[in-house]
Design a binder for these strands. Structure first.
Length: 878
RNA sequence: GGGCGCUUAGCUCAGCUGGAAGAGCAUCUCGUUUACACCGAGAGGGUCGGGAGUUCGAACCUCUCAGCGCCCACCA
């Protein structure tokens, strides 16, 4: 017996535990079936589930469950990411509460602390994914710092290094002064601010009374200036090229060079060149062979190359301006809108900084990654994201992969005493190579830098499947079928996976990449902790159940658009689950699952054939839309079928049968109702796995688990019979509408008569009881023209006319108004049809089918118009 | 500066290859009946941002104007 009320909390977690304990998520590797695999975008190991995860993983789970039901061998590969910077920051923050820094602990002890923290908080997000219903194969859970995955990292690193695709270089990189590490371009966010533009001047060397005028937003960097640039095309300043000027305060002589970087229109037309602290200046410096003077310490305080060693840039800026003012060189200060780079994790201003770093030759790796998409080996859905991908790939820069952090994969690089580099998978191997190289034993020192987190996640599609071992899973599931992720990590992750996979596997990591949008708050604002508008998916699940949240995500997911969270909609889908629950109770109460064995294709009753046909249609709609990744359409198709067709009509139509006394009809209807409900449970299962399973298990004893049920195929049904019920439904709706329009008392039992064609009259004869019950009619009978009396109001159902005598009950003025309104609509429509059909080119050029349809509508409207006019004439005198 | 989107009912949004404008929520009216009030029946509400064009036919294609948003680049 089902509980009276739908209460998801009672069963969701138990059901999940059973699935997992029974190994229902583990692919059956024995069977030779088509493979379908998804690798999960690994969440940060210490993270917690947010709405974005809920969306992303709901979509994946729908695809996984759907394909499992299609009979494929299905793997959803789960795991977590060590998230270098993010995790290290959290642990450092924890340490700070104890008054410690990582340096107090030392590298080894600190890393121990991180592992401890991982152990403590690492399970959270995976538990939450379970709560959502994600049917991942947890027995294969991986972590990017696992030994296996670390091995993959070392192996591919060595390979890239030996192929010359990883190199060390002293370059200007984005430096995070808080974390004291390099970061990649992608980890820098540009923020608009109103800063200041400082105008001052440098005296010329050959005539200290002449000056060159400079404008800058960062005066304190002048100590790193090694030139001033002006454009050769600049008529006012070009004559200065080749001269020298004197850098004030430190009185260093620097040249004035001609360079196109100096835009005559901007600032003063002359630019101070600080090659070690500005990306543009760095390029200028290279072109003119300028010295690079580093003026910053790793924490972004000024160093001993400046007069203000130890000061922050802000302090030094004030001092510099003071000094320049004293020297009479300061000219003016203006407000200036500009963008300043911040570290997306640390939130501090990023400094371009000269250091030794390691780079991946991304431009080279991009070639194959680009080609694979161009050739359709990997397809973006929706396809527009291809453009974003190509845009980035075409302008890709070398990828800085070294991080001066402690938490991460330490690079497999060892240095000899003369700094010779040995890149091997293990220390032993490096030692062997070193022995060979030096001819005697030397002490090797390992590179302390670790790798960018995205380096290991870039391997995720194959490292999790067992690579570098030629594992059975790798053979079976690689390339994976589809990657589901948000657009904001196309560059971070999708592009890197493409590059790494094409390089190492010579195959794409996934054949398709489904990109979805962000989940925003109800007002469409981005959710963020600082704004305080985040909604915890766990609270939503607690309140409405995981199925309701999942269904919301599915039905809201339309390609290329963000989703605004909506509590009322989620509540609506909880109501939907309740509705289904109650429909199941109806079936239970009517002993539908106790019916004798019955072959569904033997159904005789029209309503039963009708619902079977509708179930076919719904199933097809769901399959087709899921096959083309149209999630909202598929969800809406089930929703519409369950509520609008099964509950609103079929259940109502079965009542006259269940409450009647025809045993054979009852038996057939029981069997069909149970069959339809089963069908619903199957096609709804990918979207709402919990309630469907709970009902599946409780309605009757089952030989198969719902999760493994085969996706249904069509059952042949006579189209004639289904059309008959469609007509009857229109008829019932027409009577109901008339009742409401005429304000008839609900209890009034009416008599109704019909004028129509043979088929219509047959239908009212055959479905008489059914129509009378649902339309609440006392009597329903055919009527000859001469029997039409003056007190009848009328309405139409397709080509049939429905007449209802209302002796004195009706307000004829209201009825006249109603009929006139209808006449107006008909006339408007007729005008439209005439316009089209009188148009010769329409008749000539439009497809015959369209023209025919237009003619049919016209004649139907004409008939209806005549009927309405007739009715108006009839009541004219009341 | 370069690129990409969006603008449809009061609100949030569907509308796949051009062929009579849809859903959910909200609103209004009514509610006999044990599957369900987390419900049922019925109704109102849109010149599909403005303009021009292509077409027999445009929410959909082209151009243009206006508004909104996102991504990338940019510290003179």
């Amino acid at each position: 017996m089902l509980e009276k009320n739908y209460n998801p909390k009672d069963f969701e977690e138990n059901i999940y535990a059973k699935w997992e304990n029974n190994g229902d998520f583990i692919p059956d590797m024995r069977e030779d079936k088509e493979a379908f695999a998804i690798v999960i975008p690994p969440p940060n190991v210490t993270g917690v589930l947010h709405m974005g995860h809920a969306l992303d993983n709901t979509l994946q789970d729908i695809l996984i469950r759907y394909n499992r039901m299609l009979g494929k061998k299905v793997l959803w590969q789960p795991g977590t990411d060590h998230a270098g910077i993010a995790t290290q920051m959290v642990v450092e923050r924890n340490l700070a509460q104890e008054g410690l820094t990582r340096h107090d602990l030392g590298r080894e002890k600190f890393i121990d602390r991180v592992w401890e923290w991982k152990k403590y908080s690492g399970g959270t997000i995976c538990k939450q994914l379970r709560r959502l219903g994600a049917s991942c194969d947890w027995s294969r859970e991986r972590f990017t710092m696992d030994e296996g995955l670390s091995h993959a990292v070392r192996k591919i690193f060595v390979s890239l290094y030996k192929d010359g695709l990883i190199y060390k270089a002293k370059k200007l990189v984005n430096w995070d002064p808080k974390l004291e590490t390099a970061v990649s371009d992608l980890e820098v966010v540009q923020k608009e601010t109103v800063g200041k533009m400082y105008y001052y001047k440098y005296p010329l060397e050959d005539n200290p009374n002449e000056f060159i005028h400079i404008a800058t937003t960062r005066p304190e960097t002048m100590f790193g200036d090694t030139a001033v640039a002006v454009s050769k095309e600049n008529p006012r300043l070009a004559h200065l090229i080749g001269k020298n000027c004197i850098l004030p305060i430190v009185n260093r002589v620097i040249p004035i060079v001609g360079d196109e970087h100096a835009d005559p229109e901007k600032g003063t037309g002359a630019v101070k060149i600080t090659p070690a602290h500005d990306f543009n200046d760095f390029e200028v410096g290279k072109r003119h062979n300028l010295p690079m003077i580093n003026i910053l310490n790793p924490d972004a305080t000024l160093n001993e190359n400046t007069p203000f060693a130890g000061m922050t840039t802000q302090e030094a800026r004030v001092k510099t301006i003071e000094k320049l003012t004293e020297l009479g060189l300061m000219e003016k200060i203006e407000d200036h809108p500009m963008v300043i780079p911040y570290g997306d994790r640390s939130g501090v201003v990023i400094e371009p900084y000269m250091t030794d770093q390691w780079f991946v030759d991304a431009p080279k790796l991009a070639v194959e990654a680009r080609r694979a998409v161009k050739d359709g080996e990997m397809q973006f859905i929706p396809a527009v994201y291809e453009k974003t991908y190509f845009e980035w790939m075409n302008n890709i820069q070398p990828w800085c992969i070294s991080r001066q952090l402690w938490w991460g994969h330490q690079m497999p690089i060892w240095y000899g005493p003369d700094k010779h580099i040995f890149c091997e998978e293990t220390e032993e191997q490096a030692q062997i190579e070193a022995d060979k190289y030096y001819g005697h034993r030397v002490e090797l020192v390992r590179e302390t830098d670790v790798l960018d987190t995205w380096f290991s996640s870039g391997l995720w599609a194959f490292s999790t499947l067992g690579w570098p071992d030629n594992d059975k899973y790798l053979q079976t599931f690689y390339p994976t079928s589809v990657l589901v992720t948000a657009f904001d990590i196309i560059f971070f992750w999708v592009a890197r996976m493409m590059m790494m996979s094409m390089y190492m596997m010579k195959k794409v990591p996934f054949k398709k990449c489904y990109i979805h949008g962000l989940v925003r708050d109800e007002q469409g604002r981005k959710m963020s902790k600082s704004k305080g508008n985040t909604v915890d998916p766990m609270e939503t699940i607690e309140k409405y159940g995981a199925d309701a949240l999942r269904f919301f995500m599915a039905s809201s997911e339309t390609q290329g658009r963000d989703i605004n969270l909506s509590d009322s909609r989620i509540q609506g889908y909880r109501n939907f689950a309740t509705k289904l629950w109650n429909a199941a109770r109806f079936c239970e109460m009517n002993k539908c699952y106790e019916a004798e064995n019955f072959n569904i294709s033997d159904a005789k009753l029209e309503i039963n054939k009708w619902i079977i046909a509708k179930a076919n249609e719904a199933t097809q709609a769901v399959s087709e839309s899921l096959n083309s990744y149209r999630f909202s359409e598929s969800a809406n198709a089930v929703y519409q079928f369950v509520w609008g067709t099964f509950c609103d009509w079929y259940i109502e139509l079965t009542k006259p049968i269940f409450y009647g006394d025809n045993a054979a009809d009852i038996e057939e209807t029981r069997a069909v109702a149970a069959w339809v409900l089963d069908r619903i449970l199957v096609i709804l299962h990918p979207f709402m796995p919990f309630i469907t399973t709970e009902l599946w298990n409780n309605l009757t004893k089952r030989s198969h688990k719902l999760i493994n049920m085969t996706w249904p195929t069509d059952i042949k049904v006579d189209a004639q019979d289904t059309q008959e019920i469609d007509w009857a439904i229109d008829f019932i709706s027409a009577v109901r509408s008339l009742r409401a329009a005429m304000n008839l008392p609900a209890g009034a039992k009416l008599h109704a008569y019909v004028k129509g064609n043979v088929q219509d009259l047959q239908t009212i004869a055959r479905q008489n009881k059914l129509i009378c019950t649902l339309a609440r009619l006392e009597e329903l009978a055919p009527l000859a023209d001469k029997e039409v009396s003056k007190d009848m109001v009328q309405t139409v159902c397709r080509e049939a006319t429905i007449l209802i005598p209302l002796k004195g009950v009706v307000d004829f003025a209201a009825e006249r108004e109603r009929l006139n309104k209808e006449l107006e609509t008909l006339n408007k429509n007729l005008e439209g049809y005439a316009r089209k059909l009188n148009n010769e080119s329409f008749v000539a050029k439009a497809p015959a089918k369209v023209v025919e349809e237009e003619k049919r509508r016209q004649s139907e409207a004409l008939e209806n118009k005549a009927k309405v006019e007739e009715a108006l004439a009839r009541i004219a005198n009341f």
